[in-house]
Design a protein around this nucleic acid. Structure first.
Length: 238
DNA sequence: AATGTCTCCAACCGCAGAGGT
DNA sequence: TACCTCTGCGGTTGGAGACAT
């Protein structure tokens, strides 16, 4: 009971609303050191005044290094349509077939583009197309600014990275090198990024392409349903 | 210039299931 | 078996930017 009272008192102090860069940094450090999970420990171990749910959500939807940023592509759009027709609003299931996309992202996309019945897709209009182009330019600009900011923060990040190196010597978790790389090259679509090189490496090994690997999730899904599409591009080695 | 609308997306909430005690 | 805690999921809200009226 006393414990419950303490929890109740704690909950009064949880911060809500948009995350600051400092909070993001603390959460990233926490995940690097402790891995994903045990989210309710974050406030105690990382000094964050956020509850576990909020931390998990922030990590899964925004900070995770393997997230794919930017517009939903026409290819992704068609996959979303197909999988939604098959499974309905099971966003997390759909998201598993779209590498780098979150259930939240897909859910949001669906809501704004397909939810409204009776209205033709606004993307077909010239006006919307221009709006889309402008937005893409804006996002690109934001992404560049973010990368510049990362470079400016390089010294601080180097400190963190050296701390991680020390930590790696202790527990040898394979996850950390990727985290380090993503700090330096945060854009996973950038050819200099770890994610890109990793996928490309796999593509070379499997004698296929980057795109085919990226869409592997969907093909695996079809395999699961015993409905292999003709022209399945991934050659399975071995 | 002011206001309304659309789109995007981050974040919160409630609920349910899994797992531990 | 019952209870509790943690985690994940889906629904929903609200703010911000861009564009239309």
């Amino acid at each position: 009971m006393e414990q419950h009272m303490r929890w109740g008192a704690m909950e009064e102090e949880w911060r809500k609303g948009p995350w600051t860069t400092e909070e993001d940094r603390l959460l990233i450090e926490y995940v690097k050191l402790n891995g994903e999970g045990r989210w309710n420990n974050v406030s105690r171990l990382a000094g964050l005044k956020r509850n576990g749910k909020s931390c998990r959500l922030r990590w899964v939807n925004y900070l995770r290094p393997d997230l794919k940023r930017g517009q939903i592509t026409p290819h992704e759009k068609s996959i979303i349509l197909e999988l939604h027709a098959r499974w309905g609003n099971r966003w997390s299931t759909i998201a598993r077939s779209l590498p780098g996309r979150t259930d939240n992202e897909i859910k949001n996309y669906w809501r704004t583009h397909f939810k409204k019945k009776g209205k033709p897709s606004s993307e077909n209009t010239e006006k919307s197309r221009l709006r889309l182009l402008k937005r893409q330019q804006f996002q690109l600009q934001q992404q560049r600014q973010y990368q510049l900011q990362q470079e400016e923060n390089g010294m601080d990040m180097k400190k963190i990275i050296s701390l991680l190196d020390e930590n790696d010597n202790n527990n040898g978790l394979p996850y950390f090198p990727q985290m380090r790389q993503e700090i330096i090259y945060p854009n996973t679509n950038d050819e200099s990024g770890f994610f890109y090189s990793m996928i490309n490496g796999c593509a070379t090994m499997l004698e296929t392409s980057y795109e085919d690997i990226m869409w592997g999730g969907l093909w695996n899904l079809d395999d699961f349903h015993g409905n292999i599409q003709p022209g399945n591009a991934i050659k399975r080695v071995g």
